[in-house]
Design a protein around this nucleic acid. Structure first.
Lengths: 333, 333
DNA sequence: AATCTTCTTGAAAGCGCTTACAATTGTAGC
DNA sequence: GCTACAATTGTAAGCGCTTTCAAGAAGATT
């Protein structure tokens, strides 16, 4: 691989001049520029990113920490980030945190030692305090999908209270009065918020909230299955179940069919997130839209502004969820 | 961010010694090592990956080129690669090629200029020749999901002829004689191979192959819809349709239901790839397993061996597909 | 005690670039 | 032709590390 020295020599100029044409510096005469470009071409020269980074203290790359590299949710997030970055000619370094505090911290350390100019953190395991500490260290970053009170303008998130609220309201508007709720792990703030919005809608409708209408599981299909079984066994009056995410809803939908319940005729179902797979479900899942792709894109815009001064068209930190009415909620009286 | 100089000074040793302890070199006395480690801790020192890379000409990272960063198929591939890399303490740099020749080439250039020690290429758009040229350039790489004849031991792929064969054989064994086939874009080798295997199975069973039983679409849900409509309109005797991938099958399944066909009672369906979403489908899709996660992992092992001399347990270049019998194929007579 | 080894350590070059700053060239005005 | 200034180019330091080579320290051997 040719280096800048060889290019300089072949073109008969100095290193500095070659560096200038690499970086599009205007203070180079057209003639010189052509000479250098010819030399670069004939040597098939490609600047070493590593050396550039060391010298300039900029890597032109953004680090993304997410929980897992597969899965529909994080896939969309990545897609949103990647698209914006690509247009800005910046690069993406991804590292998974696997829902684990230590791995998330290691991931952040890795991205930093890797010289990322800024970070996008979809961190779920580390606590707020850790992020607040990080923010004091002069590391540009933005958090996705989580609202750290001390860090406004650093968090891009979904209004989960509203999400829980609109889901419940939608079901109530369809005449349901006995509404089950399958929740994910309770520790997560977004779980708490969704349920909080749920309760708010019940209250507004004058429906008393009952703790026994709620099942707490993991965020997986299995949780949906277990939750459905438990709720229907103990509270058979339930006519609708709202799930804290789509995987739970998919699990519930599957077991409902197996147990002989007709969805939505006998039992209505609502998901959350609008994962891509919901369109392959039957009946098509009514769910709450979680615009994670747009949120990822927005987080990227914000970071691009902070780090490179690239001005975004608009900036928005709180996204509003809405119900996507499809086929799993029926009207009853 | 502290540098190695500061650590050296605080510990009262030279740069070289600090470097040795960073790299776990054995020729450092325990006492010195401790001094250095203490200094590193108290300064919160973290070596600069960039500087290390420049000096050592190794970045400890592997580049992965794939078509898209979201989507179940590539998600699983990434997952497989990432897991193996993480265990080997190497890092992953991902770049998407978006099914486009230019973007794939740029992606490879990027990964190279980025100093990746080796590449994993799930390249679909660039031609074989390009890869053969690349192989002459002393760049360690392995190709996933594609068999370049000139590059044995560099390609990890699925036996797609066998895949097409077992799918057709499975359907034939269930008594079907009029079998439709929804194919993806014909230019891709794996498409050709799958259809080739399909024909082989027909031939063995004494069923004449008819060109009008095949529909060529894209690889998306839309192709499945269009294909299903076209095939059923023109060849209503068809009782089973084999699709070149799961998305096509999902499309076919959806439109079948809409058109009032019962799957599998009236029409049987087979997919290909075993994407994760197939488990959310109803009825659950009978499909051909494509162990892309394992293939990604295997490609990574091979590269780890070539680049860093890490010996893998086993190496395997050709994976065998098999039919996962679920709920979309019925027995007829 | 003198010599030979083996361990540890340090000095210094260099990885391929960027970027002040200095030097040179070119241009315009007189 | 000369000066003043702008445009262009070059010099050289330095980014933070690795690594070769040599030197010094400590043990082993006679």
């Amino acid at each position: 691989m040719a280096t800048i020295y060889e290019v300089a020599e072949l073109a008969g100029v100095s290193l500095a001049t070659v560096s200038r044409v690499i970086n599009g510096n205007q203070n180079v005469s057209a003639k010189t520029r052509d000479k250098v470009k010819d030399a670069m071409n004939s040597l098939q020269y490609r600047p070493s990113n590593v050396a550039q980074s060391l010298a300039s203290n900029r890597t032109q790359s953004i680090g993304l920490l997410l929980s897992e590299v597969d899965g529909p949710f994080f896939g969309e997030l990545m897609g949103g980030v990647e698209e914006v970055l690509r247009k800005a000619n910046k690069h993406l370094v991804i590292t998974p945190g696997h829902f684990d505090v230590k791995q998330e911290q290691d991931g952040i350390d890795f991205l930093l030692s890797r010289g990322c100019d800024g970070l996008i953190l979809a961190a779920e395991a580390v606590d707020d305090e850790y992020l607040v500490e990080l923010s004091k260290k002069n590391v540009p970053f933005v958090v996705v999908g989580r609202d750290v009170a001390e860090l406004p303008e650093r968090c891009v998130c979904l209004d989960n209270i509203e999400g829980g609220y609109v889901a419940a309201k939608f079901v109530i508007a369809h005449g349901h009065k006995h509404i089950g709720y399958i929740s994910g792990t309770y520790e997560k703030m977004h779980t708490v918020h969704r349920l909080q919005g749920h309760k708010k809608a019940l209250k507004e409708a004058g429906i008393p909230f009952e703790e026994s209408h709620v099942y707490y599981g993991d965020f997986k299909e299995t949780g949906g299955i277990a939750g459905f079984q438990a709720l229907m066994a103990e509270r058979p009056e339930i006519t609708a179940i709202i799930c804290a995410n789509d995987e739970l809803a998919a699990g519930a939908n599957g077991i409902a069919r197996e147990m002989g319940y007709k969805v939505p005729e006998q039992i209505s179902l609502v998901g959350y997130d609008n994962n891509v797979f919901t369109r392959y479900m039957h009946p098509k899942l009514t769910t709450v839209n979680h615009p994670i792709r747009e949120m990822g894109a927005m987080a990227t815009h914000k970071l691009l502004k902070d780090v490179y001064g690239i001005e975004p068209k608009e900036l928005k930190y709180l996204f509003q969820p809405e119900v996507l009415a499809r086929e799993t909620v029926s009207k009853i009286d």
